[in-house]
């Protein structure tokens, strides 16, 4: 029945839930998320780790899911945009709302995941930290609002 050519079921831990997928080991995590599991918040932009639209957290670190083979994920905990918070209340999401950051919005899942990972590492990032960490491409040009929102998110997180 199944002609996926899989190497047996792979168990993934995504947003705290276990998922069984029947995909070949070398399938990019991005496409497993989008097509095998049906979680489409993580976006395809380039497929070559340039744009960052596919950014997810792997054990808390931001990574480009188009470059991760699903067979290499093992027991690592994956967090996607859908699992960043149960209700859009993560400080980054609240700050994004406050600054009305998104334009088309397509890159914003990746921008938000990159920003959340940065803040987890550096609760008070400098502009230089932001420059270094935020390498995601935005064609609409929301960069200045992304920067302002990261500073606001740091404030919001500090108040909790």
């Amino acid at each position: 029945m199944c002609n996926d050519g899989g190497h047996g079921m792979i168990t993934l831990t995504i947003n705290g839930k276990q998922h069984q997928v029947d995909a070949p080991d070398d399938t990019p995590l991005l496409w497993v998320l989008r097509e095998w599991i049906g979680m489409t918040g993580t976006k395809f932009g380039c497929g070559v780790a340039q744009c960052g639209a596919c950014s997810v957290h792997v054990d808390g670190e931001v990574q480009r899911s188009c470059q991760i083979h699903v067979g290499d994920v093992g027991s690592a905990k994956i967090t996607t945009i859908e699992g960043l918070s149960p209700d859009g209340s993560h400080p980054v999401q609240r700050a994004w709302l406050e600054h009305d950051v998104p334009q088309c919005g397509y890159c914003q899942s990746g921008q938000i995941m990159a920003a959340a990972a940065l803040l987890a590492q550096k609760p008070r990032p400098s502009d230089a930290d932001i420059d270094e960490a935020m390498t995601n491409i935005c064609r609409c040009g929301t960069y200045n609002r992304v920067r302002a929102a990261i500073h606001t998110a740091a404030d919001l997180a500090g108040k909790v």
Binding site: R34, E35, G38, M39, T40, G41, T42, K43, F44, T80, I81, E82, L84, S85, G88, Q93, W96, L97, D100, V101, P102, G105, Y106, Q108, S109, I112
Partner: peptide, 27 residues
């Protein structure tokens, strides 16, 4: 005023054309 279309873009809930999934769909 704030945009009307922001909240969905912060949680992955916004559906773009590339996100369409339909019963029986092929790619």
């Amino acid at each position: 005023v704030k945009r009307l279309d922001t909240a969905e873009k912060l949680t992955g809930a916004q559906k773009y054309a590339i996100d369409v999934i339909l019963p029986g769909m092929l790619n």
